[in-house]
Simulated assay, not measured.
Amino acid sequence: MKKSLAKIPVAHAFCDECAGVIKERLIGIEGIHNVYANPMDSVIWFHFGSANELALVLNKLMEIGHPPLGDKIKKENYVPPLCQCAKVGSSAA
């Protein structure tokens, strides 16, 4: 089966450590391969084979608080981002 490449900019920043967790969660989805999470640009890249696999990834990103950039989230469906350490404007002590 031919694999397609997806590039998903996500709504919330994440750090290098959380990038590894995001990658683990997405690799756990059957049919998803070559996952790369870029914290500098808040972008997730991966290969998928079907629209269903792509939908599963988008759902998982929403579930862990990193929905695709531009998605409208209802207040009752909001999930805080997985990464709490890459907040914009926070300062390290």
Score class of each variant (00 low, 15 high):
residue 29 I to F: 05
residue 78 Y to G: 02
residue 92 A to L: 09
residue 40 M to K: 12
residue 45 W to N: 07
residue 22 I to R: 11
residue 11 A to V: 02
residue 39 P to W: 03
residue 91 S to G: 02
residue 92 A to I: 12
residue 93 A to E: 12
residue 64 I to R: 13
residue 57 V to I: 05
residue 54 L to K: 10
residue 83 C to W: 12
residue 10 V to Q: 07
residue 54 L to Y: 14
residue 90 S to I: 06
residue 52 N to V: 05
residue 29 I to G: 09
residue 52 N to A: 08
residue 39 P to K: 03
residue 61 L to T: 02
residue 45 W to M: 07
residue 84 Q to A: 00
residue 10 V to G: 06
residue 41 D to K: 14
residue 85 C to H: 11
residue 72 K to H: 07
residue 67 P to Y: 13
residue 30 E to G: 11
residue 9 P to H: 04
residue 23 K to I: 01
residue 64 I to G: 08
residue 54 L to H: 13
residue 22 I to N: 09
residue 40 M to P: 04
residue 25 R to T: 08
residue 70 G to I: 04
residue 49 G to S: 15
residue 88 V to I: 08
residue 14 F to V: 03
residue 61 L to W: 14
residue 16 D to P: 07
residue 10 V to K: 12
residue 25 R to D: 06
residue 72 K to P: 02
residue 88 V to N: 08
residue 93 A to C: 01
residue 88 V to F: 05
residue 9 P to M: 03
residue 59 N to E: 12
residue 24 E to Y: 09
residue 77 N to L: 07
residue 61 L to G: 10
residue 43 V to I: 10
residue 1 M to S: 02
residue 8 I to Q: 07
residue 58 L to T: 04
residue 58 L to G: 00
residue 82 L to V: 00
residue 89 G to H: 09
residue 42 S to C: 02
residue 52 N to P: 00
residue 80 P to V: 01
residue 26 L to Y: 11
residue 90 S to H: 10
residue 26 L to C: 07
residue 78 Y to Q: 14
residue 30 E to H: 12
residue 61 L to F: 05
residue 46 F to T: 04
residue 58 L to Y: 03
residue 61 L to P: 03
residue 9 P to I: 00
residue 79 V to K: 14
residue 19 A to T: 06
residue 67 P to V: 01
residue 10 V to M: 11
residue 19 A to E: 09
residue 22 I to Q: 04
residue 89 G to W: 12
residue 24 E to I: 00
residue 47 H to N: 13
residue 27 I to C: 00
residue 53 E to G: 04
residue 7 K to Y: 11
residue 21 V to M: 12
residue 65 G to S: 08
residue 37 A to E: 01
residue 56 L to F: 14
residue 41 D to W: 06
residue 28 G to Q: 10
residue 70 G to K: 11
residue 80 P to W: 05
residue 30 E to D: 14
residue 22 I to G: 08
residue 72 K to F: 04
residue 1 M to F: 06
residue 56 L to G: 01
residue 65 G to Q: 15
residue 60 K to D: 02
residue 64 I to C: 09
residue 64 I to E: 09
residue 69 L to R: 14
residue 13 A to F: 09
residue 76 E to Y: 06
residue 67 P to S: 05
residue 9 P to G: 01
residue 28 G to R: 15
residue 85 C to K: 08
residue 92 A to M: 14
residue 70 G to F: 12
residue 34 N to C: 01
residue 80 P to C: 05
residue 53 E to A: 07
residue 40 M to E: 14
residue 68 P to S: 00
residue 1 M to W: 15
residue 25 R to F: 08
residue 36 Y to C: 00
residue 41 D to L: 03
residue 92 A to R: 15
residue 60 K to H: 06
residue 87 K to Q: 09
residue 39 P to T: 01
residue 58 L to F: 04
residue 30 E to N: 15
residue 50 S to Y: 08
residue 28 G to C: 02
residue 54 L to M: 05
residue 50 S to F: 03
residue 23 K to C: 13
residue 33 H to A: 01
residue 28 G to K: 11
residue 15 C to E: 11
residue 48 F to R: 11
residue 9 P to Y: 02
residue 24 E to N: 14
residue 49 G to I: 02
residue 86 A to G: 05
residue 68 P to E: 12
residue 24 E to P: 03
residue 69 L to N: 13
residue 41 D to R: 14
residue 77 N to E: 15
residue 54 L to E: 11
residue 82 L to W: 04
residue 27 I to L: 10
residue 84 Q to S: 03
residue 81 P to N: 06
residue 37 A to H: 06
residue 71 D to S: 02
residue 47 H to K: 13
residue 64 I to A: 10
residue 54 L to D: 10
residue 9 P to V: 02
